[in-house]
Nucleic acid binder design. Structure first.
Lengths: 206, 206, 206, 206
DNA sequence: AATGAATGAGAGTTCATTCAT
DNA sequence: TATGAATGAACTCTCATTCAT
């Protein structure tokens, strides 16, 4: 493994991470072999070790790649001064867009990160917690602004949003023909208004 | 493997299924070894094969065990003539109760069933589809009864409910101290009313 | 295993030997499992050990059963004072008849006896050698009587007869519709007269 | 397993086939372990799978190796225009020479090929049938030329020759000090002239 | 006389990993 | 930069054997 990380090397390594992401997403970490990954890359099994010290390191890199943007985007959403509804929409959009763009790596992060060694897992967990806290903050400010129903359990709400987005993300990964924007719209609507007609009726009457 | 399934044998086999469920839930199918399962049962590795023809059969039995009650309960919920809100609450309650009772098997069904051979997977898929269709039917009737907002995409709604319940179920599996009824209540509230204050305000104004 | 070998026990044990012979003949010693043998007998795997101390003992009994008659018959053929041609015919007939009657045990003796422990193998080898020596004696006396071409290598001749009979025996085991007496006749003719016409022509001319 | 079969790889694989042949010949297919084969090759058990996809594939390769030349040689013997006696001698010589050169593989082919999957077995059977048919043809032409006794059952004759050669081959495999040319001569003599003095006498009288 | 249940050793096979080239 | 070759540990699974009942 080279000390001097040439540009070419970095690019090749990125390809290797993507290949690993695809294979892990399809077969799971333990169900995938290093040969599978190498084959998808078009190289031989042993050559993988030029890019990763171990299979586990490959998993770590895939997970990191899967969520790195993810949290950054949430930072800027949380920092913006838009109204609650717009920020929630932005959150859902960002989350599901991540699934479309790097769905495999994200799926791997969600499903397989527990196979990482404790240390690495902790780093990822901090990122995940940061994400959740930012989202909680959005809800809290929503309450303060009068946009969110008072008494709302913001911790629970954040978990619900994340859980839902992941569930929809799974749909997207499984069926690439799905219209993401349709899901974003319907999902955000659900999170804001629920399904009960009595509420919706009132709204119209307003 | 005995033809005549004595009572004792059946009970021991059930123990074996539970042990497999616990191990698969913790480490995933490919991450678990038959030795892990046998150790949890307190027998030697080879003896497992007195209860399962293969590791794969064990997975199949765990998955089946995980959802067998699950769909039946949904049948009776769908058949009842309660109002929409009550049926939604019952659905969430049933789903999360399943997670508390046989959480491990259910988690295994959700996460690992794709490693089953096509034939077995098909059987399970039919059960899953049945569940979703019943739930869709509840939403459709909710619209007809004026309880659910017209124009609601019932297919999407059913998927959302299921996805949410599974996300919460994961929390339950990970942390057994969680108060299920708290989650049931907050979750159903979200599904009915959403988080937006403007709707809640309207409701109060009514 | 009972000390007092009751009649009933002896008969059951004989059935067990036959079952073992059939299974060993079909799949070979190492390719057969004790469960295979037990199943053919209609008992459970563990119960086999009431009749045999080990799988190896079963093989030994099968081999012994396979050749016990075989040598005895050769004794009486060798002791008879018929002319050479008649004794050769009797030998071939006896050998092939054995194949028809207890072909499986005989086949097992021929193909699998090398898996027996040295001691047991030695006992069987002595029987086999005895058989060959008797046959050699028949050839030697044939020379003395002027029935067999002088200069014939009797050791080689005996091996040839045995080898041929075994080859034909294999045919019989594989295809039970074969007409044994046809083979006996043609085989003996070959051993006596060969295929060359020049000899046959002479004979006619005589 | 490499796609591009380098020269070196091919040679090593050939060594592996020979090692497998030796072990299978000694202990039978089911009685041999992959460790046995690897040890004879001087590599570790797992490394064997660099050369064979499975133990069964190794058996297939050994069998193929055992008879590949075998049939080709018979083709040229059958195509030659020598008299019957010479062609029979050539057949026996070729057969027994095969035993001397690749005796182990040939023995394995004869004794263990039934453990091959049906498809592979069929390919080998076709080769074997071809061999037998060519030999039958030689006998038929022998009759037409007046060299073979009329009325001879050529199918039976071919089987007899093959069976005899295999029986002698077994002797050769077991005892490498045996003088092959002695066996060839005596064997061919038997096949041509039989053991009966009356025929031999006639011949001399001619 | 027979069985259900379990065992432990060993089988074939896979695979992450190493390393000389 | 990549590969061919090999390794050793772990895995799933089979099976002869034992023994209380």
């Amino acid at each position: 493994m080279p000390q001097t990380a040439s540009h070419k090397y970095q690019e090749h390594r990125r390809q290797a991470i993507l290949a690993a992401a695809a294979v892990f997403a399809e077969k799971g970490f333990h169900g995938s072999s290093t040969r599978d990954i190498a084959e998808r890359l078009g190289i031989k099994q042993g050559s993988l070790y030029y890019y990763f010290r171990s299979k586990e390191e490959a998993l770590g890199e895939v997970c990191r790649y899967g969520i790195e943007d993810y949290v950054h985007r949430m930072e800027s959403i949380a920092a913006s001064d838009q109204p609650f509804e717009a920020r929630l929409l932005a959150t859902v959009t960002s989350h599901l867009s991540s699934y479309r763009e790097r769905n495999e790596a994200l799926k791997v992060h969600n499903d397989e990160r527990l196979y990482l060694p404790a240390e690495k897992r902790k780093t990822l967990k901090q990122l995940g917690s940061r994400y959740r806290q930012l989202l909680e903050g959005i809800f809290e400010q929503g309450i303060a602004d009068g946009a969110v129903r008072p008494g709302t359990d913001c911790h629970f709400a954040a978990l619900a949003v994340i859980g839902m987005c992941n569930a929809w993300g799974d749909l997207i990964v499984r069926d690439s023909d799905i219209d993401i924007f349709d899901i974003i719209q319907k999902g955000t609507d659900l999170l804001l208004n629920g399904y009960s007609e009595r509420r919706a009726a009132n709204r119209i009457n307003r």
